[in-house]
Design a protein around this nucleic acid. Structure first.
Lengths: 131, 131
DNA sequence: ATAGGTGCAAAGTCTTTGCGCTTAA
DNA sequence: TTAAGCGCAAAGACTTTGCACCTAT
């Protein structure tokens, strides 16, 4: 993989910004300082970086794909109201591997867990607006 | 919810066919016997049924949304080669609820776990083709 | 020198939606 | 009767891609 300026910018944007950005988020972040960056390049590089295991691609209900620069074992909570994504640390990969292998024989899987609900901020806003 | 003929057909198609069909799968299943069914209607009803908890909507990496008529606690394996979706039965909701609440305070979540990899059928095909 | 990357814009895929007609209750 | 649903086709959101030009090695 040749390291172009754009690729470095994009990789950095994902790794530095722990907001689980979409391709468009990354584009909007970088465009002001990089006037001729194109959205196609952002998509191409995010996918390439994900294929090469440099970042992870997240598939989230009712949202475009998001990207995560944190490769350690963790999972995600998505708020149905504000669409914010929060991390949860769980060490259950070994357990999942065991159980799946026992049930289906399949091995070598990667797991995505997405918990959907309402985050604390949004829950609080609701309580306040009800007063 | 008024129960139209189309809605019943669509609900039934998802509940009977345990292949986790996409909207288009459902459309293709039903169209031959229901010449004037439209894809828009299939989308509208699948989403409505999912909102009403009659079926579940699944968000799967690199695939259009799929629908599942099985409401019992279970999770999914998606094969990166043939795109088939297989069920895995795990009873970990209570554990996840506990752990997430402890870490983030968030409650009332629903979980989707998607395990990505290569299914047994596809793994076997590879072995054979190498011979 | 040249393999690979970029920008741009067009095209592709999947999904939603507006509207006039139809239908279940 | 009438609120809700349908079929159709157009539009929308998101993503990929072909091509001519550019750039890192």
């Amino acid at each position: 993989m040749k390291y172009s300026k754009q690729r470095q910018l994009i990789e950095n944007a994902v790794i530095m910004n722990r907001i689980h950005p979409t391709a468009d988020d990354v584009y909007v972040m970088l465009k002001p300082e990089n006037a001729n960056l194109s959205l196609g390049t952002v998509y191409r590089n995010l996918n390439l970086l994900a294929e090469n295991g440099v970042i992870k691609k997240l598939s989230i209900p009712n949202s475009s794909d998001r990207f995560d620069g944190d490769l350690s074992e963790h999972y995600h909570i998505i708020c149905n109201e504000c669409n914010k994504v929060t991390d949860v640390r769980l060490c259950i990969k070994d357990m999942l591997d065991d159980e799946v292998k026992k049930q289906t024989g399949v091995t070598g899987l990667t797991y995505q867990i997405v918990a959907s609900g309402v985050c604390n901020d949004c829950k609080n806003k609701k309580v306040i607006s009800k007063k």
